[in-house]
């Protein structure tokens, strides 16, 4: 249980996909102009990550790893198919996204209308493939943890795109120097937010027993921190503008 809690908060805050590893930056920058679309894409990312990471975990465990085929019989025990992981992972993701799209369209037209247009975009979002590849690289030990990892990394991504979309909606009213408008200022704000998120790094550095125990209490503070980070970024840009005016 404790390892679940630890992994959950670690993937959301410390190893945040956008701020620590820059995964899914393309859609993060392209779709963050409005909060409503950002929420739609964020929700779709959570959903697809939570489905594909455990699925790819099963593939990795029973097909790709060295010795993974030993369930077929002892003569297959020393096969190592891990060079196939890229192609298999991406095929799983593309298929799952299509499947999810078809199922959602059939059974929940409402959800399809809000999520549907984002699903095809997601097959080529690096956050999704990155989630599976990091799951493989970090050797996540069980199916439950793999699901947890997919879900919480998705939530981390959602949080990141939501905050940047909110900031970008506000920044429209401020006087950014013309060459920085649009893309440039978004990069710099993201950089400042990433610096803010680095402060979460101290969260899980205690001894093994102390690690997970304080985590649930810390969360409220963290949520405040997220708000603070966001406000800080806002303030930064505001003071920047004032400086320009002066």
């Amino acid at each position: 249980m404790l390892e679940h809690v630890e992994l959950f908060f670690k993937s959301i805050f410390i190893d945040n996909m956008v701020f620590a590893t820059f995964l899914g930056m393309c859609s993060y920058l392209a779709v963050s102009k409005k909060v409503t679309t950002a929420v739609g894409l964020g929700a779709a990312v959570i959903f697809v990550l939570a489905v594909t990471v455990p699925l790819n975990w099963l593939l990795d465990q029973y097909l790709l790893q060295e010795g993974a085929l030993s369930w077929l019989g002892p003569e297959y025990a020393d096969y190592n198919l891990s060079f196939l992981s890229f192609i298999l992972f991406i095929a799983t993701i593309a298929t799952m996204v299509q499947l999810v799209e078809i199922v959602v369209e059939k059974f929940s037209p409402g959800l399809y209308n809000s999520l549907g247009i984002f699903l095809p975009l997601i097959a080529v979002n690096c956050a999704i493939l990155g989630g599976s590849l990091f799951m493989q690289a970090r050797e996540i030990p069980s199916l439950g943890l793999a699901f947890n990892y997919g879900l919480s990394s998705g939530i981390g991504w959602f949080l990141a795109i939501l905050t940047i979309a909110a900031i970008r909606e506000k920044i429209r009213y401020s006087n950014v120097p013309p060459p920085l408008r649009g893309l440039g200022i978004t990069f710099i704000i993201t950089g400042l937010m990433a610096i803010g998120f680095m402060s979460f790094g101290g969260m899980l550095t205690g001894g093994d027993e102390e690690v997970a125990a304080p985590a649930p209490q810390v969360t409220q503070e963290q949520e405040e921190d997220v708000k603070n980070t966001k406000e800080e970024a806002d303030e930064q840009t505001v003071s920047f503008n004032q400086a320009i005016k002066e």
Partner: peptide, 14 residues
Amino acid sequence: LSPMALIVVGIIIW
């Protein structure tokens, strides 16, 4: 550290 990459690219764009 990773945040500086974003800021360097931001400056290049500028």
